[in-house]
Design a protein around this nucleic acid. Sequence first.
DNA 1: TCAGGTTCCGAACGGACTGTTCATTAATGA
DNA 2: TCATTAATGAACAGTCCGTTCGGAACCTGA
Lengths: 184, 184
Amino acid sequence: MSEDRRVRRTRRAAQEALVALILEKGYDAVTVTDIIDRADIGRSTFYAHFTDKQDVLFSNIDELDFLRPAPPAGPGRLFAFSLPMFEHALEQRRLVRALLGRRGGGPIMARAEQVLSAVVRDELVAAGGRPSPSLDLLVICVVGAFMALLRAWLDGDITATPADLDAAFRDATLPAVHAALGRT
Amino acid sequence: MSEDRRVRRTRRAAQEALVALILEKGYDAVTVTDIIDRADIGRSTFYAHFTDKQDVLFSNIDELDFLRPAPPAGPGRLFAFSLPMFEHALEQRRLVRALLGRRGGGPIMARAEQVLSAVVRDELVAAGGRPSPSLDLLVICVVGAFMALLRAWLDGDITATPADLDAAFRDATLPAVHAALGRT
DNA sequence: TCAGGTTCCGAACGGACTGTTCATTAATGA
DNA sequence: TCATTAATGAACAGTCCGTTCGGAACCTGA
């Protein structure tokens, strides 16, 4: 039923090698040759499993439950995803840093931004916000603030606890959000 | 006195070729060979003037007065840079898009973020904000929101006028800023 | 105009990386 | 055990990089 053990071994080796290499040299500087050397797998083997460097990167997403903040979606307080995400990022710091930090090259960061935008937008609409261009602009600002916080933290520009970050995020965005919702 | 005309021609040709190519294929996909073909200059000539693809990119910054929003720094209203910057981005849309948009690869975006962070921080301090870790976090959120807005606009995810963007930026950030300054 | 200096050209080079192929060997699971 | 499946390692053409060098084109100032 489950996959061939050799396959699992090979794939994991490549993924872990890439993460390690990203943390060392940054995503852009990592080459396929680097990966197969570090993972100690044959060149042909690599291309039997992945098409790209990027492919290895994306294959990591599945085990990155950072992006599944179990959105309660209920009418609880807004932006409930924030604190759990920061906490999760702290636990999986190594992996998250490699994939989302500045050294990660960006592609995954862009994906995270998309996912988050949808979540935020839904929350605002659920809270009574009327879909409109100006609401979309607000979503962009909110997500932009969150991602900037996360990035700065992951890259070590900042020392703060998840609670600090969550508080900063809420303080920076909620006033405007309440104003926007109120004047609907 | 002034530089040799040939030098000017060569440098400009390379810069313009790069901008054009970025808009076509994105920064990462552009190769030095692409540039010298498009610019119609010799390979050795290229390397006599630039060390890198990146070098060409950065050489463009000088003629990008987008990053000099003539900060009044006076105690006028906060974030006065916003509207002029969006307007400027509209004028120099082609160049700004190539350098700062998603296709631009990011390095210049990072620089812009730095510059802007300093400006915002100074404004907040001038307005009575006490330097502190939480102020720094606020700065990150404000700049993050601005850059997210700019990026989304440059990449065409949004249709809006500079005035719209400015309004969205102010609406999204000023409430929190005033709250933070008030409770100092 | 002409001479001397600067810049450009173009071809070629070694080196690195990519993505593919193939015959051979090894591990797997039933 | 044994047929199936995966991994190996070497080799390949192709692309790009960054450098070198002799000769051609150009620019400047006298």
